[in-house]
Design a protein around this nucleic acid. Structure first.
Lengths: 214, 214
DNA sequence: GTCTATAAACAGATAGAC
DNA sequence: GTCTATCTGTTTATAGAC
């Protein structure tokens, strides 16, 4: 078993936290090393010392993001011998947890905006996120979907269906500024997140029902 | 009837096109006025002359985006007296058109990345996009949804359901780097877009069926 | 390992010739 | 309307004291 990297501490950690916050809020390009150092109560030179430069800090943020996500209790590892009903229950639970993670999870505040930026800027975080988190998790979700519907897991159809499921939740996060206007919400707190989750779980049931009937 | 603003021409147009391309690809902050001028085959001073500065060019890009979207044949204006079946047909057509727009439309190449950036950077384009395009269109979609399901249109439930529908398509665009890896696609062309549309139209039917049965 | 001073490049805005 | 030269400020990276 390979040793996991140790969590960062001290100035190094403070700079990474500043990176999550500022890169996420303002984008990578718009954030200056002076701002980063100020938020971390460090000096400008410390960025070069610890990470080699601004780009190195970005990389370190992406790796720390993946490291922390890796410590979250993963979705059920095995779904080979689940009944349809059991698989549906698990899917609902995972999906519901995903919505909570997006809108209220402990990492949602700063780390998630950072990763959303990496995605839209096609930064180095995308590779790390996909290979360590999204890829493996998507495979497991496809297996669960297959167990819940009786379809074969590794088909384009199932993969796309699972992405469409994730996308519904994801949009409410990325498109939050738009959604909030239309819903006349001033923020998306726990009660708004509950409404969203309710809508999306309804969709999940509708999709599963439709596939079971056919 | 208020006169519509005339389409921009010449250097002004060239700068706006450069803005779509570069702001969309690199973000607003990462794009320099020199780059913009070079892509437009203009000089640096022309940005100040035509738009007052870099921020003014961004605003002009957002306005031009909305102006062009406004020339696209709008979704059916009236849906008051549609049967459930007719409303479903219209919803399917609009939704299918939305997927085509996202992945193959003439504006998809440069203007859409620009607006996605505006969304994640919460730029001035969001206001313009919402008030002129998204807001009115969402209202009409809710009316169609209501006609197709028998629900009342202007409820939180219907509004969120319609957003969840849009979000499915939207995700495939924003999360394209992720999706392409998992699907082993090198690009999302028309055949991949057709697969996505097929998946999402299946979801739409499943949702409508579920609501009709209840 | 921390911090400061400085260098070299680059930014956006502007004044003014044409 | 177009283009150039320049001003002023800021950027990242680095060298070197502590």
């Amino acid at each position: 078993m390979t040793a996991l990297p140790p969590p960062p501490e001290g100035t190094r950690l403070a700079l990474i936290e500043a990176g999550f916050l500022l890169f996420g809020q303002q984008s990578f390009a718009a954030t200056s090393t002076r701002q980063l150092a100020a938020h971390a109560n460090a000096n400008i030179g410390s960025i070069a010392y610890h990470f080699g430069g601004k780009e190195g800090l970005r990389q370190a943020c992406a790796e720390e993001f993946a490291r922390r996500l890796g410590t979250v209790p993963a979705v059920a590892a095995s779904s080979a011998h689940l009944s349809k009903a059991e698989a549906r229950v698990q899917l609902r639970a995972i999906f519901s947890g995903f919505v909570s993670f997006l809108f209220g999870g402990p990492m949602a505040e700063t780390m998630l905006p950072f990763m959303l930026r990496e995605l839209t800027e096609d930064g180095p975080g995308v590779d790390i996120l996909y290979s360590r988190i999204v890829g493996p998790t998507h495979v497991r979700l496809c297996a669960l979907w297959a167990a819940a519907t009786g379809q074969a897991a590794e088909t384009d159809q199932v993969r796309l269906r699972v992405f469409s499921l994730i996308g519904q939740a994801f949009y409410f996060r990325v498109g939050a500024p738009i959604v909030m206007r239309r819903m006349a919400w001033s923020a998306i707190g726990s009660s708004e997140a509950a409404l969203i989750a309710q809508t999306l779980l309804g969709n999940l049931d509708a999709m599963l029902d439709a596939l079971e009937r056919s």
